[in-house]
Amino acid sequence: MSAAGWRAAIAQFVTEQSAARAVDIADIRQLGGGAIQENYALDVRVRGGAFDGRHAWVLRADAPSRVAASHSRAEEFALLQVAHDAGVLAPQPLWQCADPGLIGQPFYLMQRLTGTAAARDLVRGAWTEDQRNSLAQRLGQELARIHGIRPPQPRLSYLPKPGIASARSRVQQYRLWLDCLPDAHPVLEWGLRWLDVNALEADTVVLCHSDYRTGNYLVNDGELSGILDWEFANWGDRYEDLAWFCARCWRFGAWQFEAGGIADREPFYAGYTSESGQQVDTERVAYWEVMAAVRWSVIALQQAQRHCSGQEESLELALTGRIVPEMELDILQTIERIEAGERNCA
């Protein structure tokens, strides 16, 4: 069924959920980007009930091909509720529909925030130094707010139990994923072995966004306007998110700005500390940057495999397989930098 064909079904659904007199879906159009889910922008007119008025919403549904370890729409909806209630700058979740009969798959509706998430545009933006620093600081603050969410959370009971040795559990996970791929990857195995032997235990278990990086937040007129893409959120080590944001693979060519290609690390860390009261331990960040490079490598290999296996022929997926050596270089260099630092301290 086409998006236009859903119009009546969605209007009926919103009418019931919002106890409206009538609901008119003025426009539905597909939004770009989403290997895992499909997003549609909805312009809605609600007559009567608590939501009377015009609204800009997003409908989010599963894409035909899902990636391992991403949550279902219902789970993501619960996450958004928890994050929104904790005061995180996330889109407000509205209603979910678990019934796949309505539009072909489960979906939920949320508020549509204004701004751009396009990573390459953001890192090439003509920002002043102040704008860069204040954006990075805000991003640090929002991350700390997410990390303020701690177990237990009844609405998030579907998440795997928070284990303290989360670094080791990540190593195990990535090895299992590698075992599902046809080729051997010695550099990744070497990195995983190092991560295993040098595993760090988390000081506290927090809610990690797990894909907190440039490309997954919105900026409007130079201001942070929303944190997006919650589908990988999980209990974990705060440093997993801090390092993911700073990892070289998420700077989109703006290498000199180590915090997500938008600013130096200092304002990002300072924002984090101001909100959490927690100093950022740069050695821990370095450890988790190795983990970040391994993780993105394995995911990139999985994406390429979707192309190679014939499941989904795509030049973009195919080329993703060929970026892996960039992360492998990061792994070698970061580990050797850490080792050199340890030798200097000894």
Binding site: E189, R193, V197, L329
Partner: peptide, 29 residues
């Protein structure tokens, strides 16, 4: 490469051959 990957995972190269391993891994990358 498959044998090497298995050996690295099992830790067989933790203590020995470190220089040779690194030379190889760097070469591959």
């Amino acid at each position: 490469n498959k044998q090497l990957a298995q050996a690295l995972r099992s830790g067989r190269f933790d203590a020995s051959s470190d220089r040779a391993i690194r030379e190889l891994l760097w070469h591959q990358v």
